[in-house]
Structures are given as structure tokens and as C-alpha cells.
Design a protein around this nucleic acid. Structure first.
Lengths: 203, 203
DNA sequence: GTCTATATCTAGATAGAC
DNA sequence: GTCTATCTAGATATAGAC
């Protein structure tokens, strides 16, 4: 079965190239951002030829989608690691803090991908509505928790979708703009936002 | 003085061209965003030739700076129209609401410029630190109010600069992503964010 | 100052040999 | 599948006539 073995080797090499491209892209997105990273930057950083890129991805956006899968896996893993029932009570300080801490640390640990997604979102035609879809989509879980609170008769400051989007906006844009190794530690940020939001949610 | 009169006419024409370029740019930025608007889009929308653009602005970024001046003038005017002492008390609901309402309405009424600034900020190299500088710069007044509160011995949820940046992030990204004529009215947004933030600030 | 025409440059994407 | 070489497209910016 020499033929089969050869094909297997080829497959492995292809997977290595794909992985090298993803690694290089992630590093470059973190260093100079998604918009300022060219396809040729990625291939040369990965030690591959320009043409090889298009064997694995149709374009830069498709590569970003592949990286996004990693981010979602990481987030799911973190969420699964903690108690996380639907009736999560965000008016409890410890529970709100944990929710914010997980969101913050996932964004920080995968900053390259978050930066890339953010740039990709903002570069889109603003009239397309993509930004609002992304914001509400990414804060869907938060919205569900708020809806649950409302069903319990708790007074909310406004529509769950809007409040969730606002909280997500605070976290996402702060994380985007705050440089790594900046003036505030992760604990300072999470504590500050927890206390800022807690009483408003607790009504 | 025929010579002087001729020069005066030329000056007026030039000013008209400059104004036409600014108007066209503002409209296009609102429709398709800053990044997706080309210099030739602006000139043809203004009914002028490509080359004329560079007689008035070095590049697209410089034109945006000129528009930014308008935005700041509008904001200053709105702030001057209300009582706005340094000891503005953000723990008073009416005063917090007014502050948020002004910020929100300026962003909404000049959405084209806000969109352009936002895109310009995000398209920059994320490692440059520009985003954090912009965020802290635009929330400087808010930070001063919070510092005043702290001097009065009021407990704040965190560092004034960080809290101010977080609040600014919530407003700016929500405004950016929320499409005009979207699902929420300006009043709903301002009321929701006021109530969400008030108790956290009031301690 | 404004115009037309064009030079320059960059990045995305493909063709065809190996 | 990967490479080298190249094509194409799109956008910035300039040259020179009026």
C-alpha cells in the first residue's frame, strides 16, 4: 500500500501548512491587527508561498472564521468549567463577577482574535447592521439571564437585549482599547465593572 | 482694483469647493462608512475633479480632522447650553441623565462623523495605543466629575479614568452598532443606561 | 483653482511547473 | 500541495494644460 502511505504523508504536510498559516496569522493579528496584515505577511511569516494560502482558505476572512472557532471553543470550555445554570443570578455579586471575569479573561487571552473580529466588524459597511447583530449575538447568554430576572419580577433598568448589549460594549471596547500590560490589572477592571453594574442590575 | 476683486472671487470659489467636499464626505461617511469611502467617491459626489481634493486636504485623514472640528463645536455648544459646573453631581439621577443624554444626542446627530472617527480609530495599529488615548481623551470631562466625587469622600467602583472609559465605551460602541431607526428610541437608551449606571456610581 | 490624464503603488488572486 | 511568477484591480497621489 505504498500509494496509501504517500497520500497520508501528503495529508499530514497539508495539515502542517494549514496550522502554520493559522499560527502566523494569529500572531500577526495580535501584533499589527487584522486590517494591516496582508495575506503575503501571513504566508511569509509561516514560511510558505503565497499560492499555498489559497489552497487552504478562500481569503483572509475565511481564515478568521477558522480562528473564531478556537475562540468559541475556549469560551465554551471556560463556561462549562463553572456552575452555569440558566437561572444564574446576576444580582449576586459573586455570580456577576464570575460572569464578567470569564468574558474578560477569554477576550484577553485570545486578544489577537478579539482584535481581528473587532476590526473586521467595524470595517464592514455600518449600514449593513452587522455590528448590532454581532453585539446582540455575542451577548445572547447575558440577555437570557436578564430575561430570567425579569420573569422573577425583578425591576431591570431597561430591555434585556439593550442592557446586555451595553454591558458587552463596555467590556469589548475597553478590552480592545486597553493595551496589554497597561495601567490596570485584570482584577482592577473586573472589580470596577462589577461594582459599577451590580447595583444597577440589583435595582 | 480689478485684480483684488478677481482674487476675492477665486477665494470664494475655493471655499465653496472645500465646503462641497466636506458636505459630500460627511454624507458618504454616514452611508457607507469612512473606510469604504474613496477620495474619488467624495470628489464625484461633490461634483469636483479628483485633483481638486488635494488642493484642500493632504489626504482623507486630514479631511476627517476638519469634520471633527465641527463635532467638537457642537458638543461644546450643547454643554455650554446647560448648567455644567465642575462639581456636577453624577450621583444625582437628573444630572447623570442629562450628561448621558447630551453625549448620546451629539453622537446620534453627528453619526457620520462618529462612525468615521470610530472606524479610523479601530483601523489603526492596535499596538499604537491610539484607541486607549482616544477613549480616555474623550471621557476626560467625565473623569473629572468622578475625581470630584472621590474628593468628596464618595466611594467609587474603581479608578475614575477606568470607570469613565468604561462608560464611554458603552455609549460609543452601542451608538456605533445600533442602526438609526433601530429597535430602541433615544429615550429608551438614555433611560436604560442612566438606571444601569446610577446606583453603581451612587455607591 | 480646477480640470483631465496618468503614474505609482499595493494587495488580492491565479496559472502552470514541479 | 507547494512553489515561482505574474496578472488584475483598485486606490492614492501627481503632472501639466487651461
Amino acid at each position: 500500500m505504498a500509494r496509501g502511505k504517500e497520500e497520508g504523508v501528503r495529508k499530514v504536510r497539508a495539515a502542517q501548512t494549514r496550522a502554520a498559516l493559522l499560527d502566523a496569522a494569529r500572531r500577526l493579528f495580535g501584533e499589527r491587527g487584522y486590517l494591516n496584515t496582508k495575506v503575503t505577511d501571513i504566508t511569509s511569516a509561516a514560511g510558505r508561498a503565497t499560492g499555498s494560502f489559497y489552497e487552504h482558505f478562500a481569503d483572509k476572512q475565511e481564515l478568521l472564521q477558522a480562528l473564531l472557532g478556537d475562540l468559541e471553543d475556549a469560551a465554551d470550555e471556560r463556561l462549562a468549567a463553572v456552575e452555569h445554570p440558566k437561572d444564574h443570578d446576576l444580582t449576586d455579586r459573586a455570580q456577576l463577577r464570575e460572569h464578567l471575569a470569564i468574558a474578560w479573561s477569554v477576550m484577553r487571552e485570545h486578544r489577537a482574535i478579539q482584535v481581528a473580529l473587532f476590526q473586521s466588524m467595524v470595517a464592514d459597511d455600518p449600514a449593513s447592521g452587522r455590528a448590532w447583530r454581532d453585539m446582540t449575538g455575542q451577548t445572547g447568554t447575558l440577555r437570557e439571564h436578564l430575561e430570567w430576572l425579569r420573569e422573577q419580577g425583578r425591576p431591570l433598568p431597561g430591555e434585556p437585549e439593550l442592557i446586555a448589549a451595553g454591558m458587552g460594549a463596555m467590556l469589548a471596547l475597553t478590552s480592545y482599547s486597553l493595551p496589554p500590560g497597561g495601567p490596570y490589572t485584570d482584577e482592577q477592571v473586573v472589580d470596577a465593572f462589577t461594582d459599577l453594574l451590580l447595583k444597577g442590575l440589583a435595582g
